[in-house]
């Protein structure tokens, strides 16, 4: 395999880190990289490179794998390539080199016409929420179901459920511009999760939010993660990441420079414990 070098470099690190979590599954060992796919990997990047037309490197030989039900942070400064990873995962961009597998399926094997069907298996959350401004909260969430051809009855059942989960039951008939940023992001998450996709991608989900609201959003993502959904969150908020104590992938100039499980935490921590810990550790370091 061409991307042998970066593979071995980035993958040995998790193996070294003596975190409570067994991150380095056998399939991720350098010796086994030639095998088709890590059996448990939901996302697998192998030697993925992408250059933008202006010569700027989006990604440079990036390799990593994310297991099912993982909660992974991707950090890096602006322009480091986080968003490129996200856009590659939703197949908005095609890599120039390397292969990307999602749930074992090579993304390059998905024909253009099948992309919408592929995307229905992903939930995507953005910094700017990307809500439809002329639809109510209810309709915004319902749209994701209408697109996939759900019946009205199913929609009437599912949408209130997900809005209850995200704490928006009272805002059903409000329009996005009548909501706070945090509430809008909750709607966006509700929309992303209403189909119960196996994979949720969040690109700077707290970028526009204040610290307290950010914790709420992270808590919500964590709750979703606990239902078995794999969650990948891109952020530049180091403080937040440190407190979350989850696996962290750091990207710099398109390269994966760090990949480690960031610490000691109980895997089956409840969301309440999680929130308490988030608020307790550090005296508002995110306000710096």
């Amino acid at each position: 395999m061409a991307p042998q070098n970066p593979n071995s470099r980035t993958r040995r690190k998790p193996a070294r880190s003596s975190a409570a979590r067994t991150l380095a599954r056998p399939a991720q060992m350098p010796t086994r990289t030639a095998s088709p796919a890590s059996p448990n990997a939901v996302i697998e990047f192998r030697g993925v490179s992408l250059r933008y037309d202006n010569g700027h490197a989006g990604l440079d030989q990036a390799s990593f794998a994310i297991d099912r039900s993982d909660f992974v942070f991707m950090i890096g400064s602006t322009g480091s390539g986080k968003s490129t990873v996200m856009r590659l995962l939703i197949k908005e961009l095609e890599p120039h080199e390397g292969t990307i597998r999602v749930a074992g399926r090579d993304l390059s094997s998905i024909p253009r016409r099948q992309v919408p069907f592929y995307r229905r298996n992903l939930g995507v959350v953005f910094q700017d929420f990307k809500l439809l401004p002329n639809r109510t909260v209810y309709d915004n969430v319902a749209y994701a179901l209408q697109v996939t051809g759900h019946s009205r009855r199913e929609i009437r059942e599912k949408v209130p459920d997900i809005l209850r989960l995200t704490g928006l039951s009272t805002k059903l008939h409000n329009y996005p511009d009548q909501l706070s940023g945090g509430e809008q992001q909750r709607v966006s998450i509700a929309r992303a999760f209403v189909n119960h996709p196996p994979l949720l991608l969040a690109d700077e989900p707290t970028g526009n939010l204040d610290p307290e609201t950010s914790i709420d959003i992270m808590r919500l993502l964590y709750r979703i993660n606990r239902t078995g959904t794999t969650v990948l969150v891109a952020t530049h908020d180091h403080a937040m990441v440190d407190k979350m104590r989850r696996r962290v992938l750091e990207i710099s100039r398109g390269r994966v420079v760090r990949d480690e499980a960031a610490g000691l935490y109980q895997r089956d921590e409840s969301t309440r414990e999680f929130a308490t810990r988030m608020r307790a550790t550090g005296e508002r370091p995110e306000g710096v």
Partner: peptide
């Protein structure tokens, strides 16, 4: 166009 972009993101087909 933003609306269309969102529609594509939630997996709407072109004809939809």
């Amino acid at each position: 166009r933003r609306e269309i972009e969102v529609m594509k993101l939630v997996g709407a087909t072109d004809w939809f």
